[in-house]
Design a protein around this nucleic acid. Structure first.
Lengths: 225, 225
DNA sequence: GTCACTATCTACAGTAATGTCGATAGCGAA
DNA sequence: TTCGCTATCGACATTACTGTAGATAGTGAC
């Protein structure tokens, strides 16, 4: 051992002093990268600290404990996801933009690793009791969606959509997106199923639109009946 | 602490000698319970050993290493899942039994914690390269399903289903089921969405049947056109 | 019964991860 | 400049978990 050159080691080298906020952000960035790259077990204080260019007691100073860091990470991620999603849905636009919006949702969830973090949280069991952020987010999405759909179909002289129907379809899409984001790589890449990831997404988008706004070809009719 | 009575402890107490196969099974049972209850980080050799009523070196004797145990667990789980699924699908019966079959699938995946294990495997990244068990399983399910559907619809004078359509619907159901199994508890319990887990499952089953066999009320018509 | 085989045990080694402690250095304020 | 605050650091304590070693005890074969 004794890998540290005792004589040459100058005690207390140069430090970079950050604002607490920036330090927390840099730490969370590093943790997020680790998580996305290596999975749940890849959150090691020392590794994250090295990635962020600091020593691991600094992480503990800012977050109190590993658990604190992990919860902060989850919170920040969910908050970002929520604001992204709500912004995408709130943004006004023609129905034609709906596929783009849904595509955006796909990207947000799967590419950025949000789905992984979400699922990890659930698996690890450290979801705080009470109403979860996810449930709240989904409720709000459903509500917004329902309002938009109602006005949309009103323009076309259609009845307002059933609330249950909207909720179910939203849930279905959410679950399918999460499922695809997490296990999709395992199943969709070069399988003999003959369906690629973009193709699956495309079909899912069409299905959702079909069920919700009756916009897809052949879908409008059944909505009237 | 000091639960072990040091003076009364007789060295080398009674042992229960199992067959290697049974030992492996008991160990895997315990590991599966731990995993389902506590998530990925809950696989501790000593805890599992205690649950199974043995000491932890015994696990190492049978599986070589923790990784070996984990892989064996994954393999057994996927094998069981596959055989259960295929059996359920292969079993002949009227279309009326389709909902029961799908319900079975739900149970297999969510109650037994298979989905958790599956997702965990993906998150942890220790999926062997090459074609995954999951892809193979899904391919087989799709193939079998397609065959059954073809004969079923033939009886009714309908065209055989499109292969892509079957594949997509199967995928959609698979993803949705995995998603529901993993994050459903977070979102569906006492949320203001107004949809309970059984209700969601029921609707999903109807949706799948509708798309695949046109069996749900109002669904048969669109299949003819 | 005797014997070989091996599943199982206790005890310990080695490693690694979280968390603590006291010292230090950057930075803004007085 | 000087001072105080605290973000940061090195070193260490603690704990926990995986894996090893050698001894022991079931169990079937002969």
């Amino acid at each position: 051992m004794e890998t540290q050159q005792r004589e040459q080691r100058r005690p207390y080298g140069r430090r970079r002093r950050r604002s607490p906020e920036q330090a927390r952000n840099e730490i969370l960035d590093a943790a997020e990268r680790r998580l996305a790259a290596g999975g749940p077990e890849a959150i090691r204080l020392k590794e994250i600290a090295a990635d962020a260019g600091m020593s691991h007691p600094t992480l503990l100073h800012h977050f109190g404990s590993r658990q604190g860091l992990v919860e902060a990470l989850a919170q920040r991620t969910m908050r970002g996801l929520a604001s992204d999603l709500l912004a995408a849905i709130h943004s006004p636009g023609p129905v034609a933009s709906a596929p783009a919006t849904l595509d955006r949702v796909f990207q947000i969830l799967s590419e950025a690793g949000h789905a992984r973090l979400l699922v990890w949280r659930v698996l690890a069991g450290w979801t705080q009791s009470g109403k979860s952020m996810e449930a709240t987010l989904l409720g709000e999405v459903t509500k917004t969606l329902h309002a938009r759909l109602t006005s949309l179909r009103h323009q076309r002289g259609l009845d307002p959509p059933s609330r249950d129907e909207t909720a179910f379809t939203t849930l279905l899409a959410a679950f399918a997106i999460v499922g695809e984001a997490v296990v999709g790589s395992l199943v969709l890449n070069e399988s003999e199923l003959g369906i690629s990831r973009p193709e699956f997404r495309d079909r899912l988008v069409r299905l959702v639109l079909d069920r919700l706004v009756g916009d897809a070809p052949g879908g409008a009719d059944e909505l009237v009946s």
